[in-house]
């Protein structure tokens, strides 16, 4: 195995493209090192991308934010303006692992590890966040929702890696929330999870919404029917019940050591409703 602390994007993409064997990107390393330890992967090349320009920056862009792909959870959590605009994204990201893991873990790593239970992904999907990808052929932008291809698989091509995420400008009355279910209070992988991103219109009703669920399908899933159930409402009980039902219908989970199909399906709906209420309150909505 070789370790390369790349100094430029070109050096990183070039080395990744040239390596015939197994490669891994090191940004936070909180998944890669676990896989190394367990012998799940034996890379021929690890490219450390943390030192590339902009990778650890959070900056304003087009009324929104551009967040470098190697920004750690603890770093994003310390950015007050970002957390005010995207509280659901910030809380999802910061739920990954312990305080120690937060010192290292990145959204790009969480996304590219491609676990359906990744805590940072549902809020990115619900937020319509777009990833910027560097590759041997140059840069391209791809919505986060289009990156996971299945458990452990992404749609990135050989030599490609994420350099940043773009969070669009926030409308008035917009906010988001993320909730997950875990058996303990910390340190677990989500058994099911839900992110809701919504906007409240001048009439006090939800004017736009996106709902994404985690750990209930091979990838994080958008649930347009659940969003539709709350659009045009003030989150009354009937709307939330319809939303829960739509969420349950969108679930296609597995039975495993962390939860049953029935448990995941039911709690996904419960969490989506709770997240919707939180996002609604954050957006200034009144029940």
């Amino acid at each position: 195995m070789r370790y390369l602390a790349a100094q430029s994007v070109a050096e990183a993409t070039g080395a990744l493209a040239a390596e015939a064997g197994v490669t891994r990107i090191l940004s936070g390393g909180t998944d890669v090192l676990v896989q190394l330890k367990a012998g799940m992967v034996e890379p021929d090349l690890i490219v450390d991308v943390k030192k590339l320009p902009g990778m650890r920056e959070i900056r304003a862009e087009a009324g929104g934010f551009r967040v470098g792909a190697a920004v750690a959870g603890a770093e994003l959590g310390e950015h007050a303006a970002f957390c005010a605009a995207w509280p659901g994204v910030a809380e999802g990201f910061q739920l990954i692992g312990s305080t120690q893991v937060q010192g290292r873990a990145t959204m790009a790593g969480n996304l590219c590890n491609a676990s359906p239970a990744a805590d940072s992904v549902p809020a990115l999907v619900a937020g319509g966040v777009v990833a910027r990808i560097a590759g041997p052929g140059g840069e391209r932008d791809l919505p986060v929702a289009d990156i996971p291809a299945g458990p452990g698989k992404t749609n990135l091509k050989k030599g490609e890696f994420i350099t940043s995420f773009f969070f669009p400008a926030r409308a008035m009355g917009a906010s988001d929330a993320y909730l997950r279910f875990i058996p303990r209070t910390e340190m677990d992988i989500a058994v099911s999870s839900a992110a809701v991103n919504l906007t409240i219109g001048a009439d006090g009703k939800v004017s736009a919404a996106e709902v994404a669920l985690g750990a209930v399908a091979p990838t994080v899933v958008r649930v347009p029917a659940a969003a539709k159930a709350i659009i045009g409402t003030k989150l009354d009980d009937a709307a939330l019940a319809a939303m829960a039902k739509a969420c349950e219908a969108a679930c296609n989970p597995i039975d495993d050591k962390r939860g049953t199909i029935a448990f995941r399906t039911h709690t996904a709906g419960v969490l989506a409703c709770r997240a919707a209420r939180i996002a609604h309150e954050r957006a200034g909505g009144k029940a």
Partner: peptide, 28 residues
Amino acid sequence: GTGDCGACSVTVNGRLVCSCLVLAAEAE
């Protein structure tokens, strides 16, 4: 060895981390 217990906690550039989840090479 997998970041689940915290017994290896150290700080790197002031940031609390599990040293089992950091490559030694990154200490440069």
